[in-house]
Amino acid sequence: MELQLQNLRKQYGRKCAVNNVSADLVPGVYGLLGANGAGKTTLMRMICGVLKPTSGSIRFNGKTMEQLGEKYYARLGYMPQDFGFYPEFTAREFMLYMAAVKGLGKRRAKKRTEALLEMVNLSDAADKKIKTYSGGMKQRLGIAQAELNSPSILILDEPTAGLDPKERVRFRNLISDFAREKIVILSTHIVSDVSSIADTILMMKQGSFLLQEPMSTVTDSIRGKVWEFFVDERAAEKCCREFSVVNLRHENGMVRLRVIEQAAPTKNAKTAEPGLEDLFMFHFGGENQEQGVKEYVGKI
C-alpha cells in the first residue's frame, strides 16, 4: 500500500499555499508539523479529493484518484479541521448517516457505529443532539466518523485542536489504536501531539516540506548543536537577538536559555539532548514563537 504525492501544488491567486510537495507514504503514522498557515489543511484537502491541486498528482497504489473514483474514497477516512455537523442530529444518527454515505451495509453500519461510539467514549451521549456537545465531544465524534469505513488512509487535520491536556492524551491513545496497518497523516502545530505517536515527521513551512524524517533520526541534524546556559535578564535579551533561542525560562532571577548553534554560544553552555520541540522551534521560532514556547514550557 502506497500513497504517492507527486509535485503537488495549490495556488491561490499569487499565494502558493502548497508548493511542490512530493512524498511516498507507506503504512505508518505521519506527523505533519507546521505553523498556522504552513499549508497543512490545503495539502490534506487535496489528498482527500475535496480540493483540486493546481498541478501535480496523487496516486494510490499507482493509480490516480480520478482513475480510482469511489474505490479511492472507500478507503479514505477524513477528519477535517473546523468541520461541522447537523446540529439537530444525534451522534448515532450522524454516524449512521455517514455510514450510509460511505456505503456501509445496514448491519455493518450499526455495528461500526456502536463500536466506535464506545471507543471514543460517546455511548452514553449517543442519543443527545450534537448541538449540545462540547468541543471535545465533537472532536471525538469527528474521529469516530472518519474511522467508520475502517479506512486504509486516515487523514486527521488538527484533531487535538480545542482539547484540554487530559483529553489530548486520551486522543493520542485513540489515534494510535486506529493507526495499525494504515497510512495515517495527522497534522498539528503542537509538537507534543505527535512526538509520541508519529513514526515519521513531515515538517511543512510556507507550503513546502522542510523535512521528511523517521522519528528516530529526525533530531540527528541538530545533535550536538543544542545548548543550555544561564544568563542574567539583560544579557538574555541580547542573546535572543544573536542566537536561535528555542526556549527561555526564568529561574531564581536568572534566565535559562536553550539555543541551537553550531558552536558553543558561551563558555558555560552545555550541550543538551535534542528534542522534536527544539527542531520545531528552530524552524518555526520566528513565526510561531509565542504559542510554541508556551506549549513547550507547559510540557516541562
Partner: peptide, 18 residues
C-alpha cells in the same frame, strides 16, 4: 454552510450516489 461538505465529499458515495 454547516461545514459538512468535506466529510461528505470525501466519503465513498459523496460525489456519486449521494
Amino acid at each position: 454552510q454547516a461545514g459538512t461538505d468535506a466529510v461528505i465529499l470525501s466519503a465513498k458515495y459523496g460525489k456519486t450516489k449521494l
